[in-house]
Amino acid sequence: MAHVEVRDLTMAYGDFVVQRGLTFTINRGDIFVIMGDSGCGKSTLLRHMIGLQAPQSGQICYSGEDFLLASETARAARLRSFGVMYQQGALWSSMTLSENIALTLEQYTNLGDEEIRELAAIKLALVGLAGFEDYYPSEISGGMQKRAGLARAMALDPEILFFDEPSAGLDPLSSRRLDELIVELQSSLGATVVIVTHELPSIFAIGTNGIFLDAERRTLVARGTPQEMLSAGGDPKVRRFLTRGEMT
């Protein structure tokens, strides 16, 4: 079942076209990997999908509804069904971890203070940060900030979770634990996951679908599971990328 459909999307900064003619579908429950070489516009695509940037042309539909043409209220409702984990965590530095998670809950739900506090505590426990409710983001390590960012992204039980380079800057074990966490949360909550990454182990471990963006040709050159992209007959550049240049 198609959850997200992107049709003929062209992204540009002024006259400089980053990517053109992007057409792909993300199914409900996918762990969808957006990969590509540095500077190809992976993060830019993510920013377009979550409405932070407007495309030059093209369509982005969620559950069949056009996201870009939607009314202000429909768009706001749609944004509430997103959870976004930013590259550097992007936790609000003047709030504790608990307050970071509670903010949207206070804004968009009718729950009482006690329930919000417990909900925030559970979200933190899910990412392995039990007991860190009253810490400020500057007081915890980078890896913990990322996990706290994930907890905040899950605050409203989103339908779609977006991750921008979740494992960048993490050690291999933490990176792997984060991957496992993403898979576990995905299957338990039934959410759709969209990940921008170029970490090969992550791509193969968790990706169930994906696209490859090429910086030189400025469009997507491969789609499907990572294994399909790697299979014989695939795009040579994609195969080189997925094997760290060992297969030509």
Binding site: I122, A125, L126, G128, L129, A130, G131, F132, E133, D134, Y135, L181, E184, L185, S187, S188, L189, G190
Partner: peptide, 22 residues
């Protein structure tokens, strides 16, 4: 339900670090 059970387990998988609470 399966999802609930797994999430409950996950939320207790990493025990609270001793002395981390303020």
């Amino acid at each position: 339900p399966d999802g609930v059970r797994r999430l409950l387990q996950l939320s207790t998988a990493v025990p609270e670090r001793q002395g981390s609470r303020r």
